[in-house]
């Protein structure tokens, strides 16, 4: 993990208020694992003050069409910090701290993975898709959002991925919550990875419970979000309740086994 000034290679509006930032950051590209994140300094003044946690979306050495020293981030504009990031231009530098946290664990025997993304929960799952593809694992990615302009268009994903989308307002793909798309794939997958709003977890847990009654126990990993201040495990801002007591999302996570964080 290092602090580095990454070079902005491009910044593209990919959908509505979502931007794809390609960066040259050789050490991070070399060391990062899917599911890890960086802490980004959004400006150089005292406001916004704190760094913002942003998932690593593509890791150069594994991502088709990327140089080995590149990483990518996807940013959704929320407030001042993300607005500043959305305005970066080619040639600017971006102060990063990372890679941080514990990423996803793809088991050696896994052949089929299901990735379930709510909103920009998609960001780290694409790095995992790249990794899975490199290991010749089949990938289904289910992506859901409130509305069409929050959905990442398929041309930004590796072509090997089977990508299904849905929106809450029905403006693109099926209408409803992304978790509605899961059931057929739960029969198919060896491992499931979930990233998105907390509200996605109860339906997933219900589906898994039904599956478990039929004798099928599917390993599920979930990436959590929390308010962070340090991102380094020192401030104890980002804690979540787990089976083993309070854990720090930034250091012990952001990826946890679902059974760690939800009793079912």
């Amino acid at each position: 993990m290092i602090r580095t000034d990454a070079l902005v290679l491009s910044n593209t509006a990919v959908a509505g208020d979502i931007f794809l930032l390609r960066l040259r950051a050789p050490e991070i590209a070399r060391d990062a694992a899917p599911g890890q994140f960086v802490e980004v300094r959004c400006g150089s003044t005292l406001a916004p003050l704190l760094r913002r946690p942003i998932s690593i979306h593509r890791i150069g050495p594994r991502a088709a069409g990327y140089a080995p020293d590149e990483i990518a981030l996807v940013i959704r504009v929320i407030g001042e910090g993300s607005r500043l990031l959305s305005r970066l231009r080619e040639g600017d530098t971006l102060d990063l701290l990372g890679p941080l946290g514990r990423g996803f664990r793809l088991f050696p025997g896994t052949r089929r993975v299901l990735l379930v993304a709510g909103g920009l929960g998609l960001a780290p799952l694409v790095a995992l898709a790249d990794e899975a593809i490199a290991h010749e694992v089949n990938v289904v990615l289910l992506g859901g959002a409130e509305t069409a302009c929050r959905i990442l268009p398929p041309q930004y994903l590796p072509p090997e991925v089977e990508y299904q989308v849905c929106t809450e307002d029905g403006s693109l793909g099926a209408c409803g919550m992304v978790t509605n798309l899961c059931p057929p794939y739960l029969e198919w997958a060896d491992q499931v990875f979930v990233c998105g709003p907390e509200a996605m977890l109860p339906p997933v847990v219900d589906q898994l419970r039904a599956l478990a009654q039929g004798g099928r126990r599917l390993p599920v990993q979930v990436s959590l979000e929390a308010r962070m201040a340090c991102g380094m495990g020192v401030c104890l801002s980002c804690v979540v309740e787990t089976r083993h007591g309070l854990k720090r999302v930034c250091r012990d996570g952001p990826v946890f086994d679902l059974t760690e964080v939800r009793v079912w």
Binding site: P48, L49, A226, R227, L236, S237, C238, V239, V240
Partner: peptide, 15 residues
């Protein structure tokens, strides 16, 4: 939680 929030040039914490 939440235990922290950013304010202008400041940080509120209630760890």
């Amino acid at each position: 939680t939440p235990r922290t929030a950013e304010t202008p040039a400041g940080l509120l914490n209630s760890i």
